[in-house]
């Protein structure tokens, strides 16, 4: 795993600052994402890790402003190539979606429209953003299908999604994401719905293409193993907040936050040459729901090393002197 230092001089591709997403319900307002800030540079690959319900997908969708109703961005800013997306209208967002920012969804079985051919679904994306003839769009689509290693793409263009396997469909979704050569791809659990054998293939493809095109990649996943394979930096989310963020290698090898430590200990493979104990560790308890987030650090009821302060004040992200990562824990020095 190569550790790449991001080009700090260039203006960041994506800068999320103090993002807060809330869902007003009849009785109270639920806050799904709180005070989330991170930066993604051009060509960089950032992993967003957490359990389901941690708010990572909502963070991803809020960048495209595609949060399902009644959710809305209630605070913060999302600077994409220097421009804040939060105040933009639907009309102003549309040219960005699928053009400058592409998205890869979790389940390729559900993502592609079952009644439209692959060709139609690719060409419509191009035509929505480029002044092209149908012919040219088709040629480009075929070209892209070839790039994601789909055999005989000319023939495949006229087929329907159900005629493809899950892995093939995810390749097509990746191809659609690549069509417009976006500068940012948001991949929401791109391999979760796939067979284990195909997962690696898809990840390699994603990595290869992102590197080749120099695109930024925001990879949302619950799987730390996937993150460590693909990303330069990683942000760990818990109950709507980022609890640790830093270069992947550092976070994986020297996790600072007790939650990250717990996550890593729960991985089946042993890391960094540690001898396997033969038993998987687990984090006791479950993540609190949005209805009853505990006061202070949301992790403290499950935390093995909690101190008194944990149940009272929310720890801010603080740099860790040894590793250079940021962690939101009272114990980090």
């Amino acid at each position: 795993m190569t550790s790449m230092t991001p080009p700090s001089a260039a203006a960041p591709l994506l800068e999320v600052q103090h993002l807060e997403v809330s869902f007003p319900t009849k009785t109270k307002t639920l806050v799904a994402v709180r005070d989330v800030s991170f930066t993604l540079h051009r060509g960089e690959r950032l992993g967003l890790v957490g359990e389901s319900g941690a708010g990572k997908s909502i963070t991803g969708f809020s960048i495209l402003k595609l949060i399902s109703r009644p959710g809305r961005i209630s605070n913060g800013s999302i600077l994409f190539e220097g421009r804040d997306l939060v105040p933009l209208s639907e009309q102003e967002m549309r040219p960005l979606r699928g053009d400058r920012i592409s998205m890869i969804f979790q389940d390729p079985m559900m993502t592609l429209n079952p009644v439209l051919t692959i060709g139609t679904q690719m060409i419509e994306t191009l035509l929505a953003h480029r002044r092209l003839s149908r012919r040219e769009a088709r040629d480009q689509a075929i070209e892209t299908l070839r790039a994601v290693h789909i055999p005989s793409p000319e023939k495949r263009m006229d087929q329907y999604p159900h005629q493809f396997s899950g892995g093939m469909r995810q390749r097509i979704v990746i191809a659609i994401a690549l069509l417009t050569r976006p500068s940012l791809i948001i991949a929401d659990e791109p391999t979760t719905a796939l067979d284990v054998t195909i997962q690696a293939e898809i990840l390699d493809l994603l990595l290869e293409l992102a590197e080749h095109e120099g695109m930024g990649l925001l990879l949302i996943t619950h799987d730390l193993a996937v993150v460590s394979q693909v990303t330069d930096r990683v942000a760990v989310m818990y109950a709507g907040r980022i609890v640790e963020i830093g270069p992947t290698e550092q976070v994986v090898h020297a996790p600072q936050h007790p939650y990250t430590q717990g996550l890593l200990a729960a991985l089946p493979q042993t890391h960094a040459g540690e001898p396997g104990t033969g038993r998987l560790a687990q984090i006791h308890g479950i993540m609190p729901s949005l209805y009853n987030t505990p006061p202070g650090c949301a992790f403290h009821p499950r935390c093995p090393v909690r101190i008194h302060a944990c149940s009272e004040t929310v720890p801010a992200l603080r740099p860790c002197s040894q590793t250079g990562t940021l962690a939101a824990c009272h114990l980090v020095e």
Binding site: L64, L66, S68, R94, P95, L96, R97, G98, D99, S102, M103, F105, Q106, D107, M110, T111, L112, N113, P114, E124, T125, A128, H129, I176
Partner: peptide, 14 residues
């Protein structure tokens, strides 16, 4: 409610 409709939005279609 289906994913493919959300996906169509994410593609920037009208």
């Amino acid at each position: 409610q289906m994913d493919y409709v959300k996906y169509a939005r994410a593609k920037g279609l009208s």
